[in-house]
Nucleic acid binder design. Structure first.
Length: 302
DNA sequence: CGAGTTTGACCTGCGC
DNA sequence: GCGCAGGTCAAACTCG
């Protein structure tokens, strides 16, 4: 039980790992508001000395519930225009082989999914059971489809489809449900969520041949928190500019350049900062100026 | 009039 | 098989 839990407040902590000169920080909340943390790595999978270099979950180590997993994430993250909001939690939910290939270690994705503990209410944004080993890269994948019985083939396809549908969720503190992220979305449904007074909204990317969806709902535990879940990845660039700025798109993985290092770069610091005591961490003081300067490549494929 | 939203109906998966 | 919950569809509606 962390201090944050005990105080019933949101917090993050930061540590400079003196042993390997890596950098680690933690956000408090995921969908179930349990703390987790991750390390940041460069594209060469070298731990970053300075978090302003990059914020790329493709090369993260996830720590969750006491488990530390290598290379859990399979996403390129640039939360480019999550305006008017503070990001409290970022969480990879599924792994897929296409993005995992960047890691050069496909088994790590499986390890990550298996190690992450599930929670009683993890059906939506929680960690799902699929992993790389359920997909074409496993031992069974070497078996020809023709060798499988129809029933097994159907089951295999079902598993593959589910595994392919990568999910990525993060929690933001915002009064706005549908945060601007540079893409155009069409709402196609809304459903009441069990045990929650807040409905879940379903959006599709309006670009042709882009099947990306996102789900937006408010946390029933803290209505100020918005849970955004992305399904799949965009296969195109952002059609809109951010706040009127031109978006000269960087390589997809180069993201989150102006990370707020002042909150993290304290060499001897391993303290946990209470957001209630650090309102500058919030919204306009943090995310908005930060995001104005980064480009939109969230969830784009290379 | 086109694009996006609303909302009830329908589909699907899962647990019992 | 049944019921429940999540997810999707599509007609009606709204808005610029």
């Amino acid at each position: 039980m962390s201090d944050a839990d005990q105080n019933n407040s949101y917090s993050y902590s930061s540590d400079i790992d003196q042993s390997n000169m890596g950098f680690q920080f933690s956000f408090l909340s995921d969908h179930n508001f349990t703390p987790f943390s991750f390390n940041m790595y460069s594209h060469q999978q070298q731990q970053l000395q300075n978090p302003t270099e990059m914020f790329d979950l493709s090369y993260t180590n996830f720590s969750h519930g006491g488990y530390t997993t290598p290379s859990a994430a399979a996403f390129d993250l640039s939360l480019s225009s999550i305006s008017e909001a503070a990001v409290f939690a970022v969480k990879n939910i599924n792994c897929d082989s296409s993005s995992n290939k960047n890691l050069g270690d496909q088994t790590s994705c499986s390890t990550a999914a298996e190690n992450l503990p599930t929670t009683p209410n993890s059906s939506d944004a929680g960690v799902e059971e699929d992993s790389y080993k359920t997909m074409g890269g496993d031992h069974q994948g070497k078996q020809g489809a023709d060798d499988l019985e129809p029933k097994k083939l159907k089951e295999k396809k079902k598993v593959q489809k589910k595994a392919r549908e990568t999910r990525f969720a993060f929690v933001t503190k915002s009064e706005i449900d549908n945060l601007e992220d540079g893409y155009r979305w069409r709402k196609y449904g809304q459903k009441a969520v069990k045990n929650s007074p807040f409905p879940r909204s379903y959006y599709k990317c309006t670009s042709q041949k882009c099947g990306v969806k996102k789900l937006i709902e408010r946390s029933y535990e803290d209505p100020s928190m918005v849970i955004t879940t992305y399904l799949s990845k965009h296969n195109h660039h952002s059609p809109t500019t951010l706040r009127g700025r031109a978006t000269a798109l960087p390589p997809p993985q180069l993201a989150f350049h102006n990370f707020p290092q002042n909150y993290f770069l304290h060499p001897n610091n391993s303290n946990s900062l209470q957001l209630q005591e650090h309102p500058q961490f919030l919204a306009d003081q943090f995310i908005t100026p930060l995001m104005r300067n980064v480009d939109s490549s969230f969830l784009q494929q290379p």
